[in-house]
């Protein structure tokens, strides 16, 4: 079963025939799902043609308005009917022969497999960029993956049911899955013979997005249950600096008769102290939200319960509904 996305579109017919070839080799039933998140009529027409040719194998999910990768993937996972879900970008990227290996890895017990593109001979600048980004992400999450941005992946259905995908989070799916205890593997893939190199330098907006993304993943993976550890730490630092500045200039005013009222340092001190207090209180607010939502949060995942039938204690009667 397979889920290619449609935004920047290459030769779909060629991709589809290769995907068919690979999936047929696996000897299991499969379907292809196209998620149409673009307003381009040409693409829509191409997809509908493919569907008309093989209506029992090809399904199309169409969005009313242009949608991003995460929304498309989430919709695809929702509509797909198979137990194993493969995703493939709609352009020539990795050599699709890898699908067989991904499938084998899932069969062997992995829950999520990435076709990583690490050994590719792309341009030096691009390689540097992707290496820096992946390093930063693995530092932020404490989990080392070589190529999280690869869009060729295979997952078990359970994962997408448990890991919420929103925003740019489909990219971080491997980390989030690993955090919930799923087995994640990476398999090096080779380049597709018709792979065309993408833009080497992106728009500044892309880098800004990535940086903010990184910040959010850092927060999500490390501090969502301990906000005060982050904000309290940074806030205390600023606050302490502010106090230091204020103490020094006050001492100078008192003992060395340096006038206080016209010193810009006064503004700096007040600003640092205020910033520190604000950061700290944001952390406290985070703890407050957690505390009052703790009842709804269950971060652990149970795989199995072993018990003797009739052993242990009987389940207690359900407590009365407070709303009644």
């Amino acid at each position: 079963m397979l889920v290619p996305l449609v935004d920047k579109v290459g030769d779909l017919r060629e991709i589809q025939s290769q995907v068919f070839e690979q999936l047929t080799k696996l000897g299991e039933g499969f379907e292809i799902l196209y998620m149409l998140g673009t307003s381009s009529e040409a693409v829509a027409k191409q997809v509908m043609e493919l569907r008309a040719e093989q209506p029992d194998r090809v399904r199309v999910v169409r969005f009313a308005s242009p949608a991003g990768d995460a929304a498309l993937l989430a919709a695809g996972f929702e509509h797909a009917r198979g137990e194993l879900l493969f995703s493939v970008p709609p352009v020539f990227d990795v050599d699709l022969a890898i699908l067989g290996e991904l499938h084998a890895a899932l069969e062997a017990g992995s829950d999520l497999v990435i076709a990583s593109r690490t050994n590719w001979h792309a341009g030096a600048s691009e390689r540097l960029q992707s290496r820096v980004f992946n390093r930063l992400v693995s530092w932020a999450t404490g989990v080392g993956f070589l190529d999280i941005a690869s869009r060729t992946r295979a997952v078990r259905r359970e994962i997408v049911q448990e890991v919420p995908i929103y925003g740019e989070f489909h990219r971080y799916l491997p980390m989030l899955a690993q955090r919930l205890g799923f087995a994640v593997r990476e398999i090096p893939a080779t380049q597709h013979p018709r792979f065309r190199r993408a833009a080497v330098v992106h728009a500044p907006r892309t880098y800004l997005w990535r940086a903010l993304d990184l910040l959010s993943i850092l927060f999500v993976s490390r501090f969502t249950r301990h906000p005060l550890r982050l904000f309290g730490g940074v806030g205390s630092l600023f606050g302490a600096l502010g106090v230091l500045v204020l103490v020094v200039i006050t001492a100078q005013r008192l003992f060395w008769d340096v006038p206080l009222a016209d010193r810009p340092m006064l503004i700096l001190g007040a600003l640092l102290l205020g910033l520190g207090v604000q950061l700290f209180t944001i952390g406290l607010l985070g703890e407050l939200i957690l505390f009052f939502q703790a009842r709804n949060i269950r971060d652990y995942r149970v795989t199995a319960v072993y018990e003797t039938p009739g052993g242990g204690l009987p389940a207690p009667a359900a407590p009365p509904d407070p709303r009644s």
């Binding site: 919930l180 205890g181 799923f182 269950r298 971060d299 652990y300 995942r301 149970v302 795989t303 199995a304 319960v305 072993y306 018990e307 003797t308 009739g310 052993g311 242990g312 204690l313 009987p314 389940a315 207690p316």
Partner: peptide, 30 residues
């Protein structure tokens, strides 16, 4: 569990740490 009918074993998918393990146990306790 075979020799001790009172035993209930709750298996977590990975190492979640003591708080969550304790919480899992308390959630199951009757």
């Amino acid at each position: 569990t075979a020799g001790t009918p009172e035993l209930v074993v709750v298996n977590l998918r990975r190492n979640f740490g003591q708080t969550l393990a304790l919480q899992a146990g308390l959630d199951r306790a009757r």
